[in-house]
């Protein structure tokens, strides 16, 4: 399979008044055409910043310090705002966490959808409506023609997220970045939305970058997982292997912390401590302060993301 997106040694910095903080530290990752990649980690691990840096919309004062983001063979990390607009929403689209917030409350669904079409395609209004209806059908919105004239408050949470997905599909993108698309929804709707995303990716051969902290969601949908911790990738490999035989102590801890792993009426397992803030990442291995295996080398030398057994890449001194 050909490579769709390749991130090479990406560093993203946030320039604060006193000092510069590194939110993404030397991340390299790639997504093939039609591949589904999951990015997991705790809050503040840099998952969302990674997603936003791909479409060059990191909120100020963040910026890409160095590294390459190669999309279809071109380095898009240096594109200007206006040049980037031809890719954003067109070839790469993004789905956000809260569908209550991502739709403009004063514009009808039809207007918001047509707007996207007009921004990237030169078509008539009738043709644009046709495209909108087709995509709404694809996400199983009943009677889409009628729904186009309705406003966001007339839809339920799950339906709004479907509409957001339909909007992201309008231009037939090659890659969808979904930033915690199911976090704001209840569990039954979560499963529906994930099934829908999975189905759409398979039928249209779309790439998907699923950013989430929910490991069960990732293991259902994706083919590969990248586990992020404090701005770096600590484990990267195919979903089944990482989920069943995690190597990095952090991944082990994350999987162990799932409520279903603890027996009933037992205390839930947890990883001791909290993730360090960007200003307090320890020298050496960023996980060293919370790791059960920690040794002297961990405090001195930052481990490289190297290929270990089973073809999984792990950044840990103690994993063989």
């Amino acid at each position: 399979m050909s490579e769709l997106l390749k991130i090479k040694n990406l560093n993203v910095d946030f320039a604060l008044r006193e000092r510069t903080l590194r939110a993404i530290n030397d991340v390299s990752i790639s997504i093939d055409k039609g591949e589904r990649l999951g990015v997991v980690g705790e809050s503040g691990a840099g998952k969302s910043v990674l997603g936003f840096s791909i479409i060059n919309l990191i909120s100020k004062p963040g910026y890409i310090d160095s590294g390459q983001i190669v999309f279809k063979g071109e380095d898009i990390s240096k594109y200007s705002y206006d040049r980037m607009r031809t890719i954003r929403g067109n070839q790469i689209s993004m789905i956000f966490q809260d569908p209550m917030m991502t739709l403009n409350p004063v514009l009808s669904i039809g207007e918001q959808m047509r707007e996207t079409v007009f921004a990237h395609m030169n078509v008539s209004k009738a043709k644009a409506n046709e495209i909108c209806v087709e995509k709404l059908k694809k996400v199983y919105i009943p009677s889409p023609e009628k729904r186009l004239n309705q406003y966001p408050h007339e839809f339920s949470g799950g339906m709004r997220q479907r509409i957001v997905i339909a909007i992201s599909l309008l231009t037939n993108p090659d890659l969808i970045i979904a930033d915690e698309p199911t976090t704001a929804l209840d569990v039954t709707i979560q499963a529906e939305i994930m099934d829908l995303l999975l189905e759409l990716c398979k039928t249209d051969n779309m790439g998907l970058m699923l950013i989430t902290h929910d490991l069960s969601v990732v293991s259902q949908v994706t083919q590969r997982i990248a586990v992020m911790y404090a701005g770096t990738i600590v484990e990267l490999g195919d979903t089944a292997t990482v989920a069943h035989k995690p190597q990095h102590p952090y991944t082990v801890g994350l999987l162990g912390a799932l409520p279903q792993r603890a027996g009933s009426e037992k205390r839930l397992n947890q990883i001791p401590g909290v993730m360090p803030g960007l200003a307090k990442i320890p020298a050496g291995c960023p996980f060293s302060d919370r790791c059960s295996l920690v040794g002297d080398i961990c405090r001195e030398k930052r481990p490289q993301l190297l290929e270990k057994t089973n073809g999984i890449r792990v950044a840990c001194h103690f994993v063989e």
């Binding site: 479409i55 403009n104 909007i167």
Partner: peptide
């Protein structure tokens, strides 16, 4: 600061359009 503005930017709309069509009516 609301997410729909960010979403409009992700869609690839121009700043003028975001100001005029998305923020102003609100």
């Amino acid at each position: 600061k609301k997410e729909y503005v960010e979403a409009a930017r992700v869609i690839g709309l121009s700043n003028i359009r975001i100001m005029w069509r998305h923020i102003l009516p609100n």
